[in-house]
Nucleic acid binder design. Structure first.
Lengths: 113, 113
DNA sequence: CCGTTAAGTTTTGTTTTGGAACTTATGGCA
DNA sequence: TGCCATAAGTTCCAAAACAAAACTTAACGG
């Protein structure tokens, strides 16, 4: 089964996953909630490749989660901001953050004395 | 960047995604919360391939989200149940379900008259 | 003119995934 | 006894997605 087929699933969780169901997409949203909006900011902060980033941003805009906004006219530059629909994913992010804080402590690898 | 590298990320959301950050994993968890526990149940309900399912279950057990439990001795049969750690992902699932219900209505394709 | 910035796009090679068939161990039944 | 069914995987191969790095476009600033 392909993930695009999930968008008509009977289960609302599955339909949600058809939009945000990969790790990079959630990281983009995290950045948005932290106030980032620019392509370069997303690329640097998340560590994903520009290739994948461009693809995910396009998807999120198509789905109405983000809006592509002209923020500079010359040179033409666009950034990405949460729509109302995107903003309403905040509770899911907050739940995941809480879980990560509690259950996924950072194991720091000691590489030097 | 590979997704395993996310497990030591400074951000708790990223660390959470290192465990549950793909669409199939969340669907397995949804099934668990719906009371399913068997391999065949997961395979049929989610539509994922058995191949991927086996891999994801193994990951979730390694991460302590699910527990592999012997439920029949002869023939030896195992199923999968949520641990306390897994149980605590429920708020995230509930948030995603709420979002899906509100923002991802089912578009039914009318194929017959 | 020349280097820099920002938002992508392209290219190439590796990994992951999808789909389907196969395996193993046992139970029930004729 | 022999045979079919069940459940939980595993194996194989082709197709799709991804990673890394270089390239493009357009304007700016000195």
């Amino acid at each position: 089964m392909k993930w695009s087929e999930l968008s008509d699933n009977w289960c609302p969780v599955a339909r949600t996953l058809s939009v945000v169901g990969d790790r990079w997409t959630f990281l983009i949203l995290r950045d948005c909630f932290l106030g980032r909006s620019k392509f370069e900011e997303f690329a640097e902060s998340s560590g994903m490749t520009r290739h994948i980033l461009a693809e995910r941003l396009k998807r999120l805009v198509e789905e109405g989660v983000l809006e592509r906004r002209l923020y500079s006219n010359a040179p033409k530059r666009y950034d990405y901001v949460l729509t109302e629909k995107g903003e309403e994913l905040r509770p899911a992010l907050i739940a995941m953050r809480a879980w990560g804080k509690k259950h996924m402590p950072i194991r720091r690898t000691v590489s030097e004395s």
